[in-house]
């Protein structure tokens, strides 16, 4: 394994410790009320009394976008190794990737024409 991964792990540990230290420091230094007034820990709704919980069902308007995201995300998985080696692969690889991208863009054009990206 590349030893740089060990450095990366050490770096992530430093980041987590620094973030935790800031929070714990604020815990120690900060004031703390002995008794919480009921209004203080109430949900904030601009001064109105909170109307029901926020954990409700909502319309997944953007689920088509989520589907498109998965599609294009998988596509980048194919593009990245190709992009790394495009110089050595020659003309065939370029033609193949152009065909692949053309098919994808066809699907994208279909989604756009069907109004998948419109807010209805």
């Amino acid at each position: 394994m590349d030893p740089a991964w060990l450095s990366a792990a050490a770096f992530v540990a430093v980041a987590a410790v620094v973030a935790a230290a800031a929070l714990v420091g604020a815990r120690v230094l900060g004031v703390k009320a002995r008794v919480d007034a009921p209004l203080k820990t109430d949900t904030y709704e601009c001064g109105e009394e909170p109307d029901g919980a926020a954990w409700v069902r909502f319309h997944p308007r953007y689920y088509v976008v989520a589907l498109l995201f998965v599609l294009f995300d998988v596509e980048t998985v194919f593009i990245l190794p190709w992009a790394l080696n495009v110089e050595g692969l020659g003309g065939t690889a370029i033609v193949a990737m152009f065909a692949f991208a053309a098919i994808l863009l066809l699907g994208w054009a279909y989604a756009v024409r069907k109004g998948a990206l419109r807010w209805q």
Binding site: A4, L6, S7, A10, F11, V14, A15
Partner: peptide, 17 residues
């Protein structure tokens, strides 16, 4: 590599913050 990540991590994180 551990020490490298640790030292650079501390310096970079402190400076960037």
């Amino acid at each position: 590599p551990w020490l490298h990540g640790l030292v650079l991590g501390l310096v970079v994180v402190a400076v960037v913050m």
